[in-house]
């Protein structure tokens, strides 16, 4: 079985975001870059499948500024991926062009029996690339999945929807799955894994290798700004009962939210 995981490098969730003076994006100096948290679940699920199916191979691919994002591939390799690929692309590339490039990788390097992604990347929070890859690669997809059981012809997934409801879906492969938190518990990279990952050759593609041009970028993001400052907090003092009475009055009369 041949498995592909598409991953993205994002700023760590503890990052204090600052907007650049020219508003073109965020300050990246000093940012700790990590494997997108939802992609960790994708990598873990793929490793488990690879290990459970003898002779399987696990590929991981990322897209972004090559020199920086290759670190994220090393994280996935250290966790247990077999082969890694990078598509060199500018930071400003959108979901459409990203998915088109990744689908071209699937065609070039495939066929893959299944493709995993995270359900969304925590930077732009679009949650679009999974479905777009599926469309370009002509594969069915299911995203926001919290359970996956592989069977020979039809696999089953559990997909999370509104209000904690869950859909049990049967899906015929090859397919694309977007991982949600809860799918598994991602492993930490082992020390031998880290050492091995460092030595691994990463296969490189350019966007033009994959037939992607500027006209494939459909969405431009600009004019970054910080959210409006909130007014200083009104700390309510006194005994608990008095605090609660004051709060209730303020919510009704001042804030008018009740």
């Amino acid at each position: 079985m041949k498995i592909l995981v598409c991953v993205k490098q994002v700023p760590d969730t503890n990052t204090k975001v600052q907007v650049k003076a020219d508003k073109s994006g965020i300050e990246t100096n000093g940012i700790k870059w990590v494997l997108n948290p939802y992609d960790e679940f994708a990598v873990e699920e793929a490793i488990k499948l690879r290990d459970a199916n003898a002779g399987s191979q696990l590929f991981v691919v990322t897209l972004g500024p090559k020199a920086r994002v290759v670190d994220t591939l090393r994280t996935a390799l250290a966790m247990g991926a077999d082969e890694a690929m990078v598509v060199d692309a500018p930071e400003s590339i959108d979901n459409h062009a990203t998915a088109k490039a990744l689908a071209a990788v699937i065609t070039k390097e495939g066929p893959f029996d299944m493709v995993f992604t995270g359900k969304l990347a925590i930077d732009d929070q679009q949650g679009a690339v999974t479905q777009m890859i599926a469309d370009f690669a002509k594969m069915p997809h299911a995203s926001v999945i919290s359970k996956f059981t592989k069977n020979d012809t039809v696999s089953t997934v559990e997909r999370e929807v509104e209000g904690g409801s869950k859909e049990m879906i049967e899906i015929k492969g090859p397919f694309v799955l977007g991982a949600n938190k809860g799918l598994n518990t991602p492993r930490y990279a082992s020390l031998p894994g880290i050492m091995k990952a460092k030595k691994k050759t990463v296969k490189e593609f350019t966007l033009s290798d994959l037939g992607v041009s500027d006209s494939d970028i459909k969405v431009k993001i600009s004019n970054f700004s910080m959210p409006a400052e909130r007014a200083p907090v009104n700390m309510i003092s006194g005994e608990a009962a008095a605090q609660v009475a004051t709060l209730s009055k303020l919510l009704r009369e001042e804030a008018k939210v009740l």
Binding site: P11, T15, K16, V17, V19, I26, I122, D123, D124, Q125, K218, V219, K220, I221, S222, N223, F224, S225, M226, P227
Partner: peptide
């Protein structure tokens, strides 16, 4: 963006 740590304009 970044789940509300900042905002941006998105156009087509």
């Amino acid at each position: 963006m970044y789940s509300g740590k900042c905002l941006a304009t998105a156009e087509f």
